[in-house]
């Protein structure tokens, strides 16, 4: 009995300390973004001055715009491309599939900095002007592998007869694809899109190397702003935390609502 109680206290303590460790920096950032002084330790009063500074900083606002633009475009493009590729991959011969899976793993397994310098030299050699285009191409490049990786398991567990049945019953291949395959793997596509969005939205290392000519994302701005104590960073950080939290909540709630509707429809 006594031992059980000890174990209970031990596990509660471990969990509590873990949560404090993980969430303290995040909560700290949010709280001090509303501080009315420059201090990092004393909360002297509520103010929105750092948010005002953030909205008045046009470089920062450009970076927010670029970050969201790139993330949305990279997510849409890499999700569509990744879905196509994954379906093609599941139908291709063994050798080609093995080779492609190896290549696909490269950006996932390589340290970001290695991927980044490869792309930097590649773009520079082709004399492509560093900026929005190089940033977008790079983000698409590192997002697609994650989309493929999250769709492949769904495709593997798909019954191949379903597709044959659809085709036998007179579906064109395109119809079979959209009406039969895609709905079956939709959860994989959705989680792939979610990973792509957050990867792109949060990326620093690769963006930092491949961009130029004044096109920055939020991470790069933070990195260059950290040289001095600057609570505006806390405001930007809070904005990022809010956006990611909203995306995550939406992504988790959407399937739940859909699931409820489906069961409701089934019951009705």
């Amino acid at each position: 009995m006594k031992q059980k109680k000890h174990r209970y206290i031990f596990s509660k303590t471990v969990l509590a300390l873990t949560m404090v460790f993980f969430y303290l920096p995040i909560i700290y950032t949010v709280i001090f973004s509303f501080n009315d002084s420059k201090s990092l330790s004393k909360f002297s009063g509520f103010s929105l001055q750092w948010y005002e500074k953030m909205f008045n900083n046009s470089d920062l606002m450009d970076a927010v715009f670029y970050t969201i633009m790139i993330a949305v475009l990279a997510t849409i493009i890499s999700t569509i491309a990744g879905t196509f590729t994954a379906i093609g991959l599941s139908r291709s011969n063994k050798v080609l599939r093995a080779v492609m899976e190896q290549i696909n793993d490269l950006p996932v397994m390589n340290p970001d900095i290695v991927t980044a310098i490869g792309l930097l030299m590649f773009f520079s050699s082709l004399a492509i002007k560093k900026g929005f285009v190089t940033l977008l191409l790079s983000h698409i490049m590192f997002c697609i592998p994650f989309v493929i990786l999250s769709i492949m398991p769904k495709l593997r567990s798909l019954d191949p007869n379903i597709l044959d049945a659809a085709l036998d019953l007179g579906c064109t291949p395109a119809q079979a694809l959209i009406k039969v395959i895609v709905p079956q793997i939709s959860s994989g596509i959705l989680s792939g899109a979610l990973i792509a969005f957050t990867m792109s939205f949060d990326d620093f290392v690769i963006s930092y190397f491949v961009t130029g000519n004044g096109v920055n994302n939020i991470s790069i701005m933070i990195y260059t702003m950290t040289k001095r104590v600057n609570p505006t960073i806390n405001a930007v950080s809070t904005l990022i935390i809010a956006i990611i939290t909203i995306v995550l909540v939406a992504a988790n709630i959407a399937p739940a609502i859909k699931g409820k509707k489906d069961t409701a429809a089934d019951n009705g």
Partner: peptide, 10 residues
């Protein structure tokens, strides 16, 4: 899921 740079800066 939250930006590593943000959490490190904190």
């Amino acid at each position: 899921w939250i930006n590593m740079l943000v959490r490190t800066y904190a």
